Simulated scan of single mutants.
Amino acid sequence: MDRPSYEDLLERHFNLSSIDKEHVYKEIKLITFFHADKSQQFLHEYAKQIKAKEPQVPATYFFSMFGLTVSSFLAMLALKKVVVPISLETISAQLYRNETYKINTIALRLHSNDWKVGDGSREWRRQEISLLFTSTVTPLLDCISDQVQIRPRELWGQLLNGLEYGKTIAIQLAETADERQAINDDFHWLTKQASHDLFNSLKNRLDFPLKEIENPSVPGQMQRMKATCCLYYQTEGSKGKCYTCPRMSVKEREIRKKEIVAEVTQ
C-alpha cells in the first residue's frame, strides 16, 4: 500500500491533511464536540473567522466541508481499495493562519496511520460506508445540530453539498470505466438506497429531491439548487442569499439572475 501517495492525494484534492497546518490557533478532535463547553468554544472561534452573525452558521459551513471529507472516504474505497481511518477519534478540525494568502481558514487533520486494505467488492465498500456513518457522521451531526439548535435536515443538506462536490473530484481521478462506475454506484446507493438506520432516522437523510434552475452564466444549461441553505446571508458583508439557495423566492432569484448576467456580459 502506497500510503504516502494516498495522503498526498487527500491533501491536494480533499483538504484532508496528515500533517499539522502551520500557525494553528484553535483545534478540536471530532470526539471533543460531544463536550458542549469545548464545542461551543471552537464553534465561537470558527464563527468569528467566517464573520457569522448567528451560531448556526459555523455548523452549516463545517458540514459542507465535512461532506468533502466523507467523499474522500468513498473515493478511496473505489479507487484504491483502502479504508481511510476516519473516525471521531482520528480527525480534528484546525483553525489556522494561511500566511500565503493572509487569511484565517480551516482544514481537517487525519491523526492515524491505521489504513486498511480491502477486496474492493461492492459489499465490502457498502459495509465500510455504513460503519462510517453509524459510528462517526450521524452521531456528530446529531450532536452539533442539537448544540446550535438547527434542524438536522439543514446539516444533512450541507453534507450532501460537500459530498456532491467531492464526487466530481473522484470521477476526475478515476482512471477506468469500472472505477467511475463504482463511484457513481456508491454515491447513488448512499444518497438514495441506503437504510435509514445509517442516519438514526425514519428515512435516508441524504435523499433530497432534485430541483434544477437555469445557470445564469450559461443560458440553456441547468444546475442543481442546493439541498438546504448554507446561511451565507447570515455573515457580515454578504450580498444576500446564494443564487442556488432553496430559501430564495422566485422574484429574488430573477433579480439575482439579472445581476449575474450583467456581471458576466460586462
Rank of each mutant, 00 (worst) to 15 (best):
A107P: 04
A107G: 08
A107E: 03
L108I: 08
L108P: 00
L108G: 02
L108T: 13
L108Q: 10
L108M: 15
R109P: 00
R109H: 12
R109F: 13
R109L: 06
R109A: 09
L110R: 04
L110W: 06
L110S: 12
L110M: 04
H111I: 05
H111K: 12
H111M: 07
H111A: 06
H111L: 12
S112N: 11
S112V: 01
S112Q: 08
N113L: 12
N113A: 14
N113G: 10
N113C: 10
N113W: 09
N113E: 09
N113P: 06
N113R: 14
N113K: 14
D114P: 05
D114R: 10
D114M: 07
D114G: 13
W115Y: 15
W115F: 15
W115L: 06
W115R: 02
K116W: 07
K116E: 05
K116L: 12
V117G: 10
V117P: 01
V117L: 11
V117E: 15
V117I: 15
G118H: 13
G118L: 15
G118K: 09
G118E: 10
D119M: 07
D119Y: 09
D119N: 15
D119P: 02
D119A: 06
D119Q: 05
G120N: 03
G120F: 09
G120P: 07
G120V: 07
S121R: 10
S121E: 06
S121Y: 07
S121D: 05
S121L: 11
S121P: 11
R122A: 15
R122C: 08
R122M: 03
R122K: 14
R122D: 14
E123H: 04
E123G: 05
E123P: 02
E123Q: 13
E123Y: 15
E123K: 14
E123S: 14
E123F: 12
E123I: 14
W124I: 01
W124H: 04
W124S: 08
R125F: 11
R125M: 12
R125I: 06
R125E: 08
R125P: 06
R125W: 05
R126T: 05
R126W: 12
R126L: 14
Q127Y: 14
Q127E: 15
Q127V: 02
Q127K: 13
Q127P: 02
Q127R: 14
Q127D: 14
Q127M: 02
E128M: 12
E128N: 13
E128W: 04
I129G: 04
I129P: 01
I129V: 11
I129Y: 04
I129K: 00
I129Q: 00
I129R: 00
S130D: 06
S130R: 08
L131S: 05
L131R: 11
L131C: 09
L131P: 03
L131N: 11
L131M: 05
L131F: 11
L131H: 02
L132N: 03
L132E: 01
L132H: 03
F133R: 04
F133W: 00
F133P: 01
F133Q: 03
F133Y: 08
F133A: 01
T134S: 01
T134R: 10
T134A: 01
T134P: 01
T134Q: 11
S135T: 09
S135Y: 06
S135C: 03
S135E: 02
S135D: 12
S135Q: 12
T136D: 00
T136F: 00
V137A: 00
V137R: 05
V137P: 01
V137L: 01
V137E: 01
V137G: 01
T138C: 05
T138M: 01
T138H: 02
T138Y: 03
T138P: 00
T138A: 10
